[in-house]
């Protein structure tokens, strides 16, 4: 029983990591009508650069953690002009190709030019959130707690931004009807940059969560995250924010449980098997509309 609780906590923490990526991708989908497949790779790039900042500052978290967020914002905003012409034409599928291109280039950069793609471990004051906790048999890291609480706070702030702020309203208007949004005088370029900036801040937060939960990175992590994030978006119903959140947390828990209860390396097969079955029953996603 205790080990199940520990797995549950671990699963929720992982799930909130997925949730933040899915939320970031959904935000980008709303603001530009693009599937930014490169976004999870920007997260990995941010984690690498953040690792360097940690090294340069003697593992000073007060400098490094904000640096993660700033790097995430800069990298994500830098990709906005690439998507702009396709977004104006609403060329949805083409944006997938563009995102995939960014993904491959980013992965190759770290694979070929940086320590030959070896695993890079984060220092002990950030890895595992700086400590481990034990209640009897229940054993988890501080990182799990930070990721869960931090994830919830980040998502809460994002929802407030989208549904209560002027810029958030403008983003949702553009998502719903670009032509009308333009007629109302909502600036296409500025609103897009704001959306990409907010998604970039999320990328920075996810990179911190990766440093804490996974404790180490290699260039291949982007692939694993991207596939899961894309599957989660389809699984939840494209553009469905709350659906994506719930599904992401569920995925984390299912993974952790499969890890605890099934032998060895079957985690992914089981997880994706469940997803396949659900998609067959509900092709528009668990929370998608039937229209």
């Amino acid at each position: 029983m205790e080990s199940i609780i520990a797995q549950l906590i671990d699963g929720l923490a992982r799930g909130s990591l997925y949730a933040l990526i899915v939320v970031g991708l959904t935000l980008l989908l709303l603001v530009r009508g693009v599937v930014h497949f490169g976004f999870p790779y920007i997260v990995v790039m941010t984690a690498y650069l953040g690792w360097m900042v940690l090294g340069l500052t003697n593992n000073n978290l007060l400098i490094s953690l904000p640096a993660f967020v700033i790097i995430g914002i800069i990298l994500t905003v830098a990709t906005e002009p690439l998507f702009r012409p396709l977004a104006q034409k609403r060329a949805f599928l083409e944006t997938l190709v563009l995102g995939q291109g960014i993904a491959i280039i980013f992965t190759d950069i770290w694979s070929h030019f940086f320590l030959h793609g070896q695993l890079v471990a984060f220092p002990s004051n950030i890895a595992a959130g700086g400590g481990r906790i034990r209640f009897g048999m229940i054993y988890f890291t501080l990182a799990d707690i930070y990721a869960l609480v931090g994830g919830l706070i980040a998502v809460g702030i994002l929802l407030y931004f989208l549904y209560r702020s002027k810029q958030g309203r403008a983003i949702r208007a553009m998502a719903q009807d670009l032509d009308i949004a333009r007629s109302l005088g909502i600036p296409f370029n500025k609103t897009g940059l704001v959306g990409f900036g907010v998604a970039g801040a999320l990328a920075g937060i996810v990179a911190i969560a990766i440093a804490m939960i996974l404790e180490a990175i290699n260039p291949g992590i982007g692939d694993a995250l991207a596939v899961k994030a894309l599957v989660l978006m389809l699984f939840a119903g494209m553009g469905n924010l709350m659906g994506g959140l719930v599904c992401a947390l569920m995925l984390g828990v299912v993974e952790a449980m499969a890890q605890a209860l099934m032998p060895g390396r079957w985690t992914e097969a089981i997880t994706f098997g469940v997803i396949m079955l659900v998609i067959l029953v509900r092709p528009n996603g668990v929370f998608g509309s039937r229209a």
């Binding site: 309203r169 949702r172 208007a173 719903q176 009807d177 032509d179 009308i180 949004a181 333009r182 007629s183 109302l184 005088g185 909502i186 600036p187 296409f188 500025k190």
Partner: peptide, 23 residues
């Protein structure tokens, strides 16, 4: 650009009304 024109004081009731129906 459109946003500057709207800001300067032209606004439109679009053909077919153009309501943002989900909001």
């Amino acid at each position: 650009p459109t946003e500057n024109i709207v800001a300067a004081g032209i606004s439109i009731v679009p053909e077919g009304r153009g309501i943002l129906s989900l909001m």
